[in-house]
């Protein structure tokens, strides 16, 4: 999203000459542990973000709605996390400015958990990024989103097997209806405790 509220901030920041908006903020604001949400454009990152934080960022059916970094707080089983929603990225090797922002964020803010959200119907195009996140040694949880559309397209995924192959935790969800979100929260907190 660009939340429209954020644009007001942008405009007022612009007026006051505060340039920090452009760059990813490097400071831990509250010293909270972080969850970073990454993935291709238009896979439902912002819906997951809204779901985890209870915020209302704009969600659309086209890629590139989130050109900025959205931040919010999530409380999971009593622990508070800062959730960071990134612009879409196709690859760990950035081409566009948004991809650069997304990667810089992963490198500088070092989230405790990186949630890679994917459109399950197109796993063959989505998983190369998962592979790269694993290669980079980052703490990845793979979130197979849009399970409903996947099922109605006649595609079934053997999740246990995929989990063994990839060596990372996998959680299926339908973020728009909230299906699987509790399981996702549970996996996040388990992962963060280790």
């Amino acid at each position: 999203m660009v939340s429209w509220r954020k644009i007001i901030n942008t405009i007022s920041l612009g007026a006051s000459g505060d340039g920090c908006h452009e760059k990813v903020k490097l400071t831990d604001r509250d010293g909270l542990r972080k969850i970073g949400i990454v993935g291709n454009p238009n896979v439902g990152k912002s819906v997951i973000f809204n779901n985890l934080t209870g915020a209302h960022v704009t969600v659309s059916n086209y890629p590139g709605t989130t050109v900025d970094v959205a931040r919010g707080k999530a409380k999971i089983e009593g622990s508070e996390f800062e959730v960071v929603d990134t612009p879409g990225m196709y690859s760990f090797l950035p081409i566009t400015e948004e991809e650069r922002v997304a990667r810089l964020l992963l490198l500088t803010e070092k989230p405790e958990v990186i949630l890679h959200v994917v459109d399950t119907r197109n796993l063959e195009r989505m998983l190369p990024l998962t592979l790269q996140l694993i290669e980079a040694g980052l703490p990845v949880i793979l979130n197979l989103n849009m399970m409903d559309e996947t099922e109605s397209a006649g595609v079934t995924v053997d999740i246990d097997k995929l989990e063994k192959e990839l060596t990372v935790p996998i959680v299926p969800t339908v973020a728009t209806s909230g299906r699987g979100m509790d399981a996702l929260r549970k996996r996040i907190i388990e992962y963060a405790r280790n």
Binding site: E124, L127, L131, G154
Partner: peptide
């Protein structure tokens, strides 16, 4: 590098995904 990675992904997915022909 991208091709190798894609090949790896395809190998993994071969045994994981089943598509009913629609």
């Amino acid at each position: 590098i991208a091709m190798t990675r894609q090949q790896k992904v395809n190998n993994v997915l071969d045994s994981v995904i089943a598509t009913r022909d629609k």
